[in-house]
């Protein structure tokens, strides 16, 4: 702490011998003990993100190495928030369920409060968002992504070496977007399918992450493909609201539509998923066309009905 204050106040690089003299915690230490303690403190400061610079004040004697912390690199830049923004930040600090990220968010908000930002908890009352992670590899992948550390792990049984770029949370699952170092290509990994320990390789910040525009495109790729196929189905009146929402009324031969049903055209992207979706509705949804889907649905229903005793 004193070392941080000492270096922060200095306008110039402070040499090690000077530091030893002025920082009270270093008094009374033997040479070796001082070296050890100083190196440890300096590394710890760097580890927590304090930018401790090394350099020399002198052009003539560049070997006289000293240390300093530049204020503008250290301090949170001036930042001010409106009442609405502040309320959102206050709520954000309560969102994480995973202990590590919760601590980090609380500590980030504490820094904002230390800069004079004070959230009013009454605003946004009635909202209780939360986010968490059940994936065993999550913590390691998260840390590697935020620090930009290359990692290796086994994914569905295959060894991978990747540079983590970004993480995305969708419908309760975490995904990692990363450069696969061996293939030289970008890949998306579902974090729950990482089936080994995650091992760090190399130092933090050792690679560059492409800009945001490209990232948005990558993450959009997680959404299901475009619903470009269409089927005609009969839906029992008042049922299957989820299908009905993406359907439009369709014409069908009157005798094909049972009494109490209406015909709809509904789009889908993957045949297998759509067959399952229709079957899940039991007798409330009947496929009229195309014939292939109709046959698949009947086959699946027969398989389930066959389990009857």
């Amino acid at each position: 702490m004193n070392l941080a204050i000492c270096l922060l106040l200095a306008r110039r690089f402070v040499e090690k011998s000077q530091i030893r003299e002025v920082v009270e915690g270093y008094h009374g230490l033997s040479d070796a003990a001082f070296e050890r303690t100083f190196e440890r403190d300096k590394d710890e400061l760097r580890g927590m993100g304090v930018p401790v610079e090394t350099g020399s004040n002198s052009v003539l004697f560049p070997d006289d190495i000293g240390y300093r912390i530049r204020r503008k690199d250290f301090e949170l830049p001036p930042i001010s928030f409106t009442a609405e923004e502040t309320a959102a930040l206050g709520l954000a600090a309560t969102v994480w369920e995973s202990a590590t990220q919760a601590e980090q968010a609380v500590s980030a908000l504490a820094k904002l409060r230390a800069a004079g930002v004070d959230p009013d908890p009454e605003r946004l009352a009635g909202l209780a968002p939360s986010i968490g992670a059940r994936e065993p590899a999550f913590a390691e992948i998260w840390a590697a992504t935020s620090e930009r550390v290359t990692v290796r792990f086994s994914y569905k049984g295959q060894p991978r070496r990747v540079q983590p770029w970004a993480m995305a949370y969708r419908r309760g699952s975490w995904y990692l977007v990363a450069l696969d170092v061996d293939k030289g290509e970008r890949r998306t990994f579902k974090v729950s399918r990482i089936d080994s320990e995650v091992t760090r390789m190399g130092k933090p910040g050792s690679y560059h992450v492409p800009g945001e525009v490209e990232m948005d495109a990558v993450l959009a790729g997680l959404e299901p493909g475009p619903a470009d196929a269409e089927a005609i189905v009969a839906i029992r009146d008042g049922r299957a609201a989820d299908l009905r929402r993406r359907a439009r009324p369709a014409a069908a031969e009157a005798d094909a539509v049972p009494c109490g049903f209406s015909a709809f055209a509904v789009t889908y992207s993957r045949t297998g998923d759509f067959v399952g979706e229709v079957c899940a509705h039991g007798s409330d949804v009947i496929v009229l066309a195309p014939a292939g889907i109709r046959r698949s649905v009947i086959a699946q229903l027969k398989a389930v009905a066959g389990g009857r005793k």
Binding site: G49, F74, L76, A143, S146
Partner: peptide
């Protein structure tokens, strides 16, 4: 206060 660490920034 000090700048955010990467982990703090990402968490928030």
């Amino acid at each position: 206060p000090m700048r955010f660490t990467p982990d703090e920034a990402l968490s928030l």
